[in-house]
């Protein structure tokens, strides 16, 4: 069993005083600070436009933050130049809403594109990836149950299958953390739960920390270890999923009758979908 106290409490990602102001003057994020310990799967909830996507994109600088620092392990991501940023991005796997696979490439090419930060241009251009990368890609496709589809084009797959490819692509990077942006926004409830469970499992298997933007409070309650609530670009809640009381939800989303949502969440907690927390703890 791996988890010693220092290993589990080691901070993988630290965000300090992050702010983003768009050229239009809109403040997307204001003074956001949080620390993500190794192995923690953190759910980021909040209304549309609260800055969830911006926060995730500021961490790997797909969006440049206006102020604040991002530390990945010992690396100050916000201070890096171009090539340094590329090397840092390899360490952060990203999974997207609507999958963001390259539709006309095969499943295998999509998974291997997770290795682009590691291989020189000519190798990627000739699709001559190192044997270790290819072996890893096949293992990952086995893991997400898509080995048979390796040579199919990404646009031939169903939504759930595409998101599995998205997960395999992120894992091919051998990342230290996962940044996950609304992974289930375009999936049906059943597939959503399967994808969330898969995410939790792969994080547990690899001791990966993750930040997961999530729309659905019930899903967040069910699968997240910690919840951060964002409203108008500020953190208004940071705590356990059990602490999402109607008052807290009102603070995050605004006034609404939360009793139904609470019951739905409670009902699901008793259902067979609940991940076995003891098992997960053991895996960690």
């Amino acid at each position: 069993m791996r988890p010693t106290v220092s290993a589990t409490t080691a901070v993988k990602l630290r965000v300090e005083g992050l702010a983003k102001r768009y050229a239009t003057g809109d403040r997307a994020l204001t003074d956001v600070s949080l620390a993500l310990p190794a192995g923690q799967v953190l759910g980021l909830i909040g209304p549309s436009g609260a800055g969830k996507s911006t926060l995730i994109r500021c961490i790997n600088r797909l969006v440049e933050p206006t102020a604040g620092r991002v530390l990945l392990g010992e690396t100050a991501v916000t201070d890096l130049g171009r090539s340094g940023l590329r090397r840092a991005r390899r360490r952060m796997g990203m999974i997207f809403q609507e999958y963001a696979l390259v539709e006309r490439l095969t499943v295998m090419e999509n998974v291997l594109s997770g290795r682009l930060g590691y291989v020189p241009f000519w190798r990627s251009w000739l699709r001559r990836f190192p044997p270790a990368d290819i072996a890893r890609a096949f293992r990952l496709l086995d893991r997400v149950g898509l080995r048979e589809q390796a040579d199919k084009r990404a646009d031939a797959l169903s939504g759930g299958q595409r998101q599995r490819v998205g997960i395999a692509r992120a894992l091919a990077q051998e990342p230290e953390i996962l940044l996950v942006d609304e992974p289930t926004a375009s999936l049906d409830p059943k597939t959503s739960r399967q994808i969330m469970r898969l995410l939790r499992e792969v994080c547990a298997e690899r001791g990966l920390a993750a930040i997961v933007n999530i729309h659905d409070v019930a899903l967040a309650r069910q699968f997240m270890m910690r919840i951060v609530g964002l409203r108008d670009g500020r953190i208004v809640y940071d705590g356990a999923p059990e602490g999402l009381s109607p008052e807290v939800l009102t603070a995050i989303y605004g006034e609404e009758d939360w009793s139904a949502a609470g019951e739905a969440g409670a009902g699901r907690d008793a259902g067979p979908d609940v991940p076995d927390d003891d098992q997960l703890a053991a895996a960690l």
């Binding site: 963001a100 390259v102 590691y118």
Partner: peptide, 11 residues
């Protein structure tokens, strides 16, 4: 989005 996803891998 497809471009963003490939950029995010460190390509």
């Amino acid at each position: 989005r497809q471009v963003e996803a490939v950029r995010a891998t460190g390509a």
